[in-house]
Design a protein around this nucleic acid. Structure first.
Length: 490
RNA sequence: CGGGGUAUAGCGUAGUUCGGUUAGCGCGCCUGGUUUGGGACCAGGAGGUCGCAGGUUCAAAUCCUGCUACCCCGACCA
């Protein structure tokens, strides 16, 4: 393992790239734009998955699985949906290879597919094509289904976790008898995401709706959770879409009401992806490496023994093993690093880089005093804790750290959130103190576009909790009823 | 897809301008020893089609042509 990361203040984006690789989370693969998620990184993703999956099931959803491939014709059926995804689709045209005279492999031109298959960029079309067969009556509704899957969007420029050509995600697709119920579902799920982001990722988010131009292709309304990274750029971290009857109409999905009337089905879809990994990394980590909230850390505690020989290590193990057992019985994940190939200093640096929340160092000295050095990753503080109290202490500390990490991120966000009333001020803040900027906007796509072109900042969302406030658009001076959140975004 | 750049061992690089021994160095890796409370040290060792294909030449990492991949800046995007 090579030494040190570049500092965030020197080059934030290089810091991120180095951190992802050096902390063993992921690396670039032989396939352009596609990443290999390494075991340590995948372990974090699995923790996220487990919790989200639980939350989905607690709100009445079940998992299912739909095909990776979608017939090309399905995309034609919802006009704005095609427009949104057409430019980034991978297409399967053949189903067989053959060997040439030179012993090379080539696509067999005789094995052309009648209809090309699209590698799913999202599954609305194949799912709604399927739902058509599942739904006849109001008694068949609602359908509350989620799928864990990989999708492909052929992006021009990619970055590990933040934007990869293939990524892992979950996509919920629900069908309802009424508009109200579908909207209720859409809102419920954005709240689930917000709760997950804040309580598990320790990442404060703003819930809001997207403007027309930022809305999901095919949606009537898109709800989003927006997080603010340490460099002042926003990251869209999860979306929940009210799809109206758009997909039901496109795929002709109708049902009979209690009154025997034929109606189109109402829909929602919602998703979060491995992008959350990027959000997690950029929310908390520092110049020494990853900082993980205890609830998502693959290992919450690591014991580093300090020893000169096997006898010492055995003596340490004898004392440590019962402590580890006690921690595990409380549901705390623990690692005991007995490697003699690395010295303690190396291990300290390594666990800091990888973001283990709590580190306990135990050497001969400590066995005698009956106190162990406990170091917490977020503040780097160390304290000596008596052997008899250490289990309790660590359990409390993990809880405390989860809160502390969230609070720190929240304070940072508040400090980099500005209210501005003039366009000049807006531009100045973008230069000097980037972050969320609350400003008035006249509600038109033209003004939004102009601001984007001139400053690269976009409207991240119209916050759902914003109070009404009469004002004037900072650009055109036209009336506005509330402030919206602007930021430069990933 | 437009503009710029780079390609030498697992990683980072020197050498390329101006062709000339066996392509050098750091990290990492292997072996042995000494070490071990914040990224150890010494000794020895392994590892290279110099991105690919062709050309010029007595001689090519170095010059020429073509190709490919990657990086940065734009446009696009969860």
């Amino acid at each position: 393992m090579s030494k040190g990361l570049i500092k965030r203040s020197e080059n934030y984006s290089q810091w991120y790239n180095e951190l992802v690789v050096k902390a063993d989370l992921a690396e670039n693969s032989a396939v352009r734009g596609c990443m290999v998620i390494k075991p340590y990184g995948y372990a974090i993703w699995e923790k996220m998955q487990a919790q989200l999956d639980k939350m989905f099931k607690d709100t009445g959803h079940m998992n299912a699985y739909f095909p990776l491939f979608i017939p090309k014709s399905f995309f034609n059926k919802e006009a704005s949906h095609v427009d949104g995804f057409a430019k980034e689709c991978a297409v399967v045209t053949h189903y067989r290879l053959r060997t040439t005279e030179n012993n090379e492999i080539e696509v067999d031109p005789n094995a052309k597919l009648e209809e090309e298959l699209i590698v799913r960029p999202t599954s609305e079309t194949i799912i709604w094509n399927t739902y058509k067969n599942w739904i006849q009556s109001y008694r068949d509704l609602p359908i509350l289904v989620n799928q864990w899957a990989n999708v492909v969007r052929w992006e021009m420029r990619t970055r590990l976790f933040l934007r990869t050509a293939e990524f892992l995600w979950q996509e919920g697709h629900t069908a309802h008898a009424t508009k109200e119920e579908a909207i209720e579902e859409t809102k419920q799920m954005i709240n689930v995401y917000a709760e997950f982001a804040e309580n598990w990722m320790a990442m404060p988010v703003k819930i809001g709706t997207k403007t027309d131009s930022e809305r999901f292709a095919g949606a009537v309304d898109t709800y989003t959770i927006e997080a603010l990274m340490q460099d002042g750029k926003a990251l869209q971290s999860g979306t929940s879409h009210f799809l109206g009857q758009n997909f039901a109409k496109a795929f002709d999905v109708k049902f009979l009401t209690k009154e025997n009337k034929e109606e189109y089905v109402w829909a929602s879809s919602w998703g979060v992806s491995t992008r959350l990994m990027g959000a997690l990394i950029m929310s908390h980590s520092d110049d020494l490496g990853l900082v993980l909230p205890p609830k998502l850390a693959p290992f919450q505690v690591v014991f580093v023994p300090i020893f000169k020989n096997d006898d010492q290590l055995n003596a340490i193990s004898e004392r440590i093993d019962p402590i580890i057992k006690a921690l595990k019985s409380r549901g705390i994940t623990v690692q005991f690093d007995k490697r003699d190939s690395q010295r303690p200093g190396f291990k300290f640096a390594e666990y800091e880089l990888k973001g283990y929340p709590v580190r306990v160092a135990v050497g001969p000295r400590d066995l005698e005093s009956g106190q162990y050095e406990v170091a917490r990753r977020d503040t780097l503080e160390k304290s000596f804790v008596a052997e008899s109290e250490i289990v309790e202490y660590i359990e409390n500390l993990l809880g405390e750290m989860q809160t502390a990490i969230f609070n720190k991120a929240k304070i940072r966000r508040e400090e980099t959130t500005s209210k501005v009333d003039t366009y000049d001020e807006f531009k100045k803040i973008l230069e000097e103190k980037p972050g969320f900027i609350l400003a008035h906007w006249d509600g038109t796509a033209e003004t939004e576009e102009r601001i984007k072109n001139e400053t690269k900042a976009t409207i991240r969302c119209i916050p759902i909790d914003s109070e009404k406030e009469e004002g004037k658009c900072m650009v055109t001076g036209k009336p506005s009823k509330r402030r919206v959140i602007f930021a430069k975004a990933y």
